[in-house]
Design a protein around this nucleic acid. Structure first.
Length: 793
DNA sequence: TTAGGGTTAG
């Protein structure tokens, strides 16, 4: 005893009452500094104890989580009061023991004590932390009955519960019904509530209201309002808040500082964020995390990595937020070695089991094209959330495994994980690539069922998805219903029209886009040039190409040159195409040479084709395109030996031609066909149907085009090979299965052959069907004997 | 004894 008295300097206190007061204070200090056992020792040694001594010790046990000790001491308390009960309850609440806390509230009433604002405050705090809205409402009911709904302490707690449980309207109602009793804590709870509920405007207005009423903001208030500024990139308001922070003397508070850093990076001002960082007196991990994320957001992954290295060098305690942030920067840099090093650190520090961290690792490996590692981590992950799945789904799509990405999405749904905006837009893109209309629509439905609002990215994906499935009316409908549109929305539709043979509509849409004030990007021009090329608008295309550089300052990339060479090649301006190729300010890549080769094929220019093919083979020796195109050109002019030598070259180099494959989607199943394929369970019926179709269209004037039977074999076999091309089998199957009038939708992985194209036109006429055929390059809409491409593809 | 706060991957 003497020890604490001398330390606190209470020697001069004369009365026992003063001594006890000092002892209680010291007990409190010990508990506050976490020395619970020392406090208990002192408690036991105290010659005198009063109600405060007992309650302090009970509350101390509770705060440190020692609930059994708290309960034991409570049971031993000589004279219980409502405060003893509150002290005990506060411990159970702090530990989040919902059932026990409410049981105690009930028990204290049985003993005749009314829960007052202390107990109610503790319980409300627990409800707010744990998101227990119905329990919160229970307390609200009790407060109304006992008139505690007029107590500022209790009402503030209630506001906090409603706001944290995303019932902002209820919180607002309570807040507005207490105009006189509000204090700075109430205002703060409300500001943070708006912020949490995504109502940045509410938060900013509330902050203004608070200042207008003369209530002082403090270190608890500023972070909330800064988060709201960050959410809507309101730098102006953010700067004003920063001034208030400095004037109020809160600029050295780490909570405020980290919120300032976050606000500045999200409002596009990385330098100001760095300035706040530099002024910090302590190393704060959350501020560093915010700064790393900010650097990544501003495409400065090297700065992010340097900061991470600094944290690691200073032996700062990294948390589960640090790793995802820095892994993001590594993913951006595609730095495989650093990625692996950080992965080792994650394992060493024991964070691999954290979903947050593992998700970031999965994403990083997927972005580095290392899907094996991504899958391995995913399989080991115990708690897989929508982001774990999306990381894999996006990663698969990113690496061109669209089928895998769609399958993973279906598996995710089977595992009971709801869709969100990001996964919906990713899977729609994969469905678009594969032209899976049914599945994409199901993905959209599952997203709608999840109750989420539409977003710009989901709408953009939908426009693109419908356009990629050849459903232009649906694409346009989504586009028209959008409240806001950006360059991606416009471009999706421009490209959609272009690919579906409605080039003129693409150009009209472009004019509308410019008129609406949206600036085109490089993809918009790829769409426009594609549209011009396929609509035979050579001069218009050349104008767009010039305007892109002159009016919009966009440097042409390989894809633009490829489109232009295609455009010139198609209109027979093969010399101009060659000239453009030689004048390119970037080294021509395989895409450009492929266009050149296609142009040569169209016009039978074998010499130039040979040169183009040779370059292409040099650039991509394993890509079958050059070999096949050149061999086909030789075959077409009867140079069978040359064709054969190209094919044997292919064989000796192990280059495999991707087999032509057509597929149709029916009742959520995909039916796939290759040429002369008899593997389908209904093959017999399909072949019978196809033979009947061929007889009918021959009667209508169809003549098989031998130029597309590219093998040196006798005429009869040639006809036979042509007859059973994959797209013809797919159409026969569709005609067998679909009701009259339903459009036939067929998708093909390579370009449609000329003979099939002619056959489709006849089929559309004889069978009165709309046939939509998407090949690797574009759409063909066959109707009444005509094709939307005007035989120009 | 007592209310309110910052970073978060796809």
């Amino acid at each position: 005893m003497s020890k604490f008295i001398s330390r606190r300097g209470y020697r001069n206190f004369s009365s026992g009452k003063d001594l006890l007061f000092g002892a209680n204070n010291y007990l409190m200090d010990l508990l506050k500094s976490g020395r619970v056992d020392d406090a208990r020792k002192m408690f036991d040694e105290m010659p005198q104890r009063d109600e405060v001594t007992w309650n302090t010790m009970i509350a101390g046990y509770g705060s440190s989580g020692r609930l059994v000790d708290a309960r034991k001491l409570f049971d031993e308390t000589p004279k219980r009061s409502a405060i003893s009960w509150s002290s005990l309850i506060s411990g159970y609440c702090k530990m989040g023991c919902e059932i026990e806390s409410f049981k105690l509230i009930y028990e204290m009433q049985l003993e005749g004590y009314r829960p007052r604002h202390f107990a109610l405050g503790s319980v409300l705090r627990m409800c707010s932390v744990k998101g227990l809205i119905s329990r919160g409402k229970q307390i609200h009911g009790y407060a109304v009955k006992t008139r505690f709904d007029a107590d500022v302490f209790v009402v503030t707690g209630l506001i906090d519960v409603y706001a944290k449980c995303l019932c902002i309207v209820e919180a607002e109602h309570l807040f507005e019904s207490m105009p006189s009793g509000r204090n700075h804590v109430t205002w703060t709870a409300m500001i943070n509530g708006y912020s949490l509920n995504g109502d940045a405007d509410g938060a900013r207005q509330c902050f203004k209201g608070m200042r207008g009423e003369g209530s002082e903001a403090n270190q608890y208030t500023f972070p909330g309002v800064l988060v709201a500024c960050a959410a809507v990139s309101d730098l102006r308001f953010g700067l004003q808040v920063h001034c208030c922070v400095v004037r109020g003397g809160f600029d050295a508070n780490v909570f405020v500082q980290s919120a300032l850093i976050d606000m500045y990076t999200k409002c596009g001002n990385l330098n100001s964020a760095w300035r706040v960082m530099e002024l910090m007196e302590v190393d704060d991990v959350i501020s560093c995390n915010a700064m790393i994320v900010g650097c990544v957001r501003h495409s400065c992954p090297d700065q992010a990595l340097a900061l991470f290295r600094m944290m690691h060098g200073k032996s700062m305690e990294l948390d589960e937020f640090t790793y995802p942030s820095v892994l993001n920067s590594v993913a951006l840099m595609k730095d495989v070695t650093t990625g692996k090093n950080i992965h080792s650190l994650v394992i060493k520090s024991g964070y691999e089991g954290y979903t947050l961290v593992s998700n970031a690792l999965i994403d990083m490996y997927a972005k580095q094209n290392d899907m094996d590692s991504a899958f391995r981590l995913f399989d080991f992950l115990v708690e897989k959330d929508v982001i774990s799945w999306t990381s894999l789904i996006t990663g698969s799509a990113h690496n061109g495994f669209y089928e895998a990405s769609v399958k993973l999405f279906c598996e995710m749904r089977r595992n009971g994980i709801d869709s969100d905006r990001v996964v919906a837009s990713t899977v729609l893109s994969s469905c678009a690539e594969l032209a899976l209309l049914d599945l994409g629509q199901q993905a959209q439905a599952s997203f709608v069922k999840s109750g989420l609002d539409r977003s710009l990215s989901v709408d953009n994906s939908l426009v693109s998805f419908y356009a990629h499935c050849g459903c232009l009316e649906d694409a346009k409908m989504v586009f028209d219903s959008m409240k806001t549109r950006n360059v991606v929305s416009w471009t999706a539709l421009i490209v959609g029209y272009a690919q579906n043979g409605e080039g003129i509509k693409s150009l009209v849409l472009y004019d509308e886009m410019i008129a609406s004030g949206v600036k085109p990007d490089f993809i918009t021009f790829i769409g426009l040039l594609f549209a011009c090329s396929h609509a035979g608008l050579t001069e218009r295309g050349q104008c767009y190409f010039e305007s892109m550089v002159k009016d919009h300052g966009i440097r042409p990339c390989h894809d633009h040159y490829a489109c232009m060479i295609d455009l010139l090649g198609r209109s027979g301006k093969i010399e101009e195409a060659e000239k453009l190729l030689s004048e390119m300010d970037v080294e021509p890549d395989a895409t450009v040479w492929k266009s050149m080769l296609s142009a040569c094929r169209k016009h039978g220019n074998i010499d130039l084709a040979k040169r183009a093919a040779a370059t292409l083979i040099e650039l991509e020796p394993q890509d079958p395109v050059a070999y096949v195109l050149l061999a086909n050109m030789y075959s077409a002019v009867g140079k069978w030996e040359d064709a054969a030598s190209i094919r044997s070259l292919m064989k000796s180099r192990g280059v495999v031609k991707e087999p032509g494959r057509s597929w149709v989607e029916m009742n959520s199943r995909v039916h796939s066909f290759t040429s002369e394929d008899r593997s389908h369970t209904e093959a017999e019926a399909i072949y019978m149907k196809l033979d009947e179709m061929l007889r009918s269209i021959k009667a209508a004037g169809y003549v098989p085009d031998m130029n597309f039977a590219l093998h040196d074999i006798n005429e009869e076999s040639k006809v036979h090979g042509l007859a059973y091309h994959s797209e013809k089998l797919a159409v026969a199957f569709s005609l067998l299965k679909l009701s009259d009038g339903v459009p036939v939708r067929v998708y093909k992985n390579v370009r449609v052959c000329g003979d099939c194209h002619t056959a489709m036109k006849f089929i559309s006429q004889v069978y009165q069907r709309h046939i939509i055929l998407r090949d690797s390059n574009r759409f063909h809409h066959f109707k009444g004997g005509m094709c939307s491409c005007n035989d120009y593809w």
